[in-house]
């Protein structure tokens, strides 16, 4: 079974984001780039599935070919077999649907039967791409999955639906699964695997290689301006005896925060 994983490379979670001078993007110099952490859960689940069922794990990315550094360290060194990066100048201005078209075309060209990815990337938090990929492939998808199993033809996926309720979804492959925190614990890249990863294959493709053109990914959405959220005001410390502090807290929650 060929198992695909859609992977995005994003700024490390510790990054202090700065807006670029023209306000149309972020300052990229000095950023440490990592595999988006939810995608790491997807990679781990794919590798565990491959270990149980056999087959091959293939990573798919739509982005600059330089991402292969992170794909090797965060994917090929933890059990994925190879990677496909679609790098094309037209990708620079596209939107989530454009990215989904590229990923879906890549997945279809490889004949995958099961696709994992993170529930969202940690940079722009769009959340839309996995569902779009599934729709474009004509597959079902299950999002925010915290437990997954498959026998190679059917699957069972558990997802949290809020309020402590869990939903169990069963169905037949193919399917797109999006990973929520808790699905698994990603393994460390073992040193010999890091060394072997440098010899694994990374195919860099253009849109044309997937029978797509720039017109196919013309954005419907354009990002025109970036601004940082306002700085959080300093906390307030309540003083006095417990009764006074509780009364004041309740008053603030009702009158200022308006949550009760």
């Amino acid at each position: 079974m060929k198992i695909g994983v859609c992977v995005k490379v994003a700024p490390d979670t510790d990054t202090r984001i700065k807006i670029s001078g023209d306000g149309a993007g972020i300052e990229e110099s000095g950023i440490k780039w990592i595999v988006s952490p939810y995608d790491s859960f997807g990679i781990e689940e794919a590798v565990q599935t491959q270990e149980a069922q056999g087959g091959e794990v293939i990573l798919f990315s739509a982005g600059p070919k330089d991402w292969q550094t992170q794909l090797r360290a965060g994917g090929l060194a933890v059990g994925a077999e190879r990677a496909v990066i679609v790098d094309d100048p037209a990708l620079a201005g596209t939107d989530p649907l454009g990215i989904a078209r590229v990923l879906a075309a890549g997945i279809a060209s490889e004949g995958c039967e099961l696709v994992f990815t993170g529930k969202q990337a940690i940079d722009d938090d769009n959340v839309q791409v996995p569902a779009m990929v599934a729709e474009l492939l004509g597959w079902p998808h299950v999002s925010f999955v915290t437990d997954f199993s498959t026998d190679g033809s059917t699957f069972t996926a558990t997802r949290n639906v809020g309020g402590g309720t869990q939903e169990v979804v069963t169905g037949s492959l193919p399917v797109v699964i999006t990973a929520e925190r808790g699905l698994n614990t990603p393994r460390y890249a073992k040193l010999p695997a890091i060394m072997k990863a440098k010899r694994k294959k990374v195919d860099v493709k253009s849109l044309g290689d997937l029978d797509l053109s720039a017109d196919d990914i013309t954005p419907a959405v354009q990002l025109t301006n970036f601004s940082l959220p306002p700085e959080r005001p300093a906390g307030r410390k309540l003083e006095g005896d417990v009764d006074t502090m509780v009364q004041e807290l309740v008053r603030l929650l009702r009158e200022e925060a308006k949550v009760i």
């Binding site: 550094t69 090797r72 890249a189 040193l191 990863a197 440098k198």
Partner: peptide, 9 residues
């Protein structure tokens, strides 16, 4: 890259 990945790990 391998040194960087080793350090990261």
């Amino acid at each position: 890259e391998e040194h960087a990945a080793l350090r990261e790990m």
